[in-house]
Amino acid sequence: MKYRMSLITVSAVLLLGGCGTAGSGATLKNGAVEESGWKTLKKVSGREVIAELKQTVKESPKRDKAAAAQTESYEYKEGLYGEPNPELAEDMAVQAIEGPIAIEAMEKVYGGHESFENEGILFFENQMSGAEQSGIWIGVKEPDERVQKLLDELQPKVDAGEILAEPIYIFRSPHTQKELHEQQDEVGLALKGMRSERGSYGLSVNTITGVVEISHDFLKPAQQKELEGMFPDNKFHFEQDGRIVAEPGESSIIMPEETFTDTPVTEGGFILSAGEGKIFVAGGTEGAVYYEFPEADKLQIGQRVKVEASGGIMLSLPGQGKAKFVEVLPDYKPAGATLSESQAVAKAIEMTDGKTTFGFLVIQEITFDEKETKWILKIMQDDKEATLEVADQ
């Protein structure tokens, strides 16, 4: 483990900061001094630590045993959170040991998690995610006597060897969780007014940095500057998610440079139905999804396509979502064939007419048999692989 444990016993169990004059405060429990405010004791990762616990014991056998149990866990050994190493072991130990105890103490002092959201923020940092140290951070925007009460709750746990002092950081936060939620709601309203019909966005405010993070597929540079101007006190991070949606009047169908190809195409899925503002795509390398798509009438059953979705896909069977772009792939038509691949697929759909396990045709692969002049479709039928043959005529 990488925890640094102090071997020096000091008379003041807690080091607290105050902005009053020296000697003007009253001594509290654990040797802390109450003054009119809270000074910065030190900076860790750029944050102002205003109070800290003291490691009063050289050994913490109870904590060591709990930490060792983390390295014996299935999650650690199987690398579910990353490659097993000392940094991961430390991250997991802090989250399993100091984390719950610190959260319980915080909720007791501040009257629950929701009440604390009005006062500050709480988060973990992990070395496996790039942090300098593993830790649970409790940030208070306007620290008062409750910070002392929080320390008084936690210090006995350190003294008893149940937790370590170092991974628990109490700092001055520039914002509260409630303020971040309010910022997110305000920016969300502004985004809705800018969103195009087909556009989508993801919005969050980073708890640690306070940066407004927006993923989108419709915001132009001028709109991004407009948002920044509307919220001058906030920092923004914009990330474009895929291609920008088509402008009004522009098509969202991407056609191939060549309509036909004599080389088999392996990407994409097949359009099983199209019309009335919806397409159903399944098979190949695409999942089975119904997409809302205004230009559905311009597409044809049997075409092999790749779909770029706008937003998330509803987890149902079939799935449901919105298509931002539909890329039509070249239609495979080998030399000597009468039908193209899309025409053969359209015939296969007509032949099955929903008489399949899932109520729709699941095409895994399609090949052309030149000798027999027929198309052979590898499909899923009754939860097993089967073949379907379509005459090339």
Rank of each mutant, 00 (worst) to 15 (best):
S60R: 08
E107Q: 09
K77M: 12
L80K: 13
M106Y: 01
Q148K: 15
Q133E: 13
F116T: 03
T71C: 01
E72Y: 07
E83H: 14
R63W: 00
A96V: 06
I103S: 07
K65D: 01
L122V: 05
L122C: 06
P156V: 12
Y74H: 06
Q127S: 08
Q133I: 14
I138V: 10
E132M: 13
K157H: 11
L151R: 00
Y74N: 04
A96G: 08
A68K: 04
I103V: 14
V109W: 00
E87G: 15
F123D: 02
N126K: 10
M92A: 06
W137P: 00
K141A: 10
Y76V: 04
S115Y: 13
I103W: 05
E87W: 13
M106R: 02
I97V: 10
S134A: 09
F124G: 03
F124D: 03
A105I: 05
G79H: 10
E117P: 13
P61E: 09
G99R: 02
H113L: 11
K108G: 01
D64F: 00
N118W: 11
T71V: 04
E90D: 14
E72C: 07
E78H: 15
E59M: 12
T71W: 00
G112P: 04
E117L: 13
E98Y: 02
S129P: 06
L151D: 00
G79L: 10
S115P: 13
A131S: 10
S115W: 10
R146I: 12
V94C: 01
G82S: 09
I121C: 06
P156I: 10
A93C: 07
Y81V: 15
K65I: 01
E119H: 07
G112L: 06
D152S: 12
E114Y: 15
I136R: 00
V147T: 15
W137G: 01
P84F: 15
K65E: 04
E75D: 11
S134I: 01
D144K: 11
Q155D: 09
G130H: 08
E104L: 11
E145I: 11
P86F: 14
A102E: 01
Q127T: 09
A68M: 06
K62M: 09
E98D: 09
D91E: 08
E107V: 06
V109T: 01
D144H: 14
E83I: 15
A96E: 06
Q127N: 10
G82I: 07
F116W: 11
E132L: 12
S115H: 12
E90I: 09
I103E: 08
S134E: 04
E125V: 04
K141R: 14
H113T: 14
E59L: 14
M106V: 03
D64Q: 05
V147G: 08
L150N: 00
Q133Y: 14
M106H: 01
I138R: 00
K62Q: 08
G135M: 05
A102S: 09
G99Q: 04
Q148I: 13
K62W: 05
F123K: 03
I138F: 01
Y76F: 08
K157S: 15
L150Q: 00
S73M: 06
N85C: 14
Y81N: 15
F124P: 02
P86G: 12
K157Y: 11
Q133A: 14
E78I: 12
E75N: 09
A89D: 09
F123M: 05
D144A: 15
K149W: 04
Q155E: 09
I101V: 13
I103G: 07
V140Y: 06
P84Y: 15
L154E: 02
G135T: 06
A102C: 09
Y74L: 05
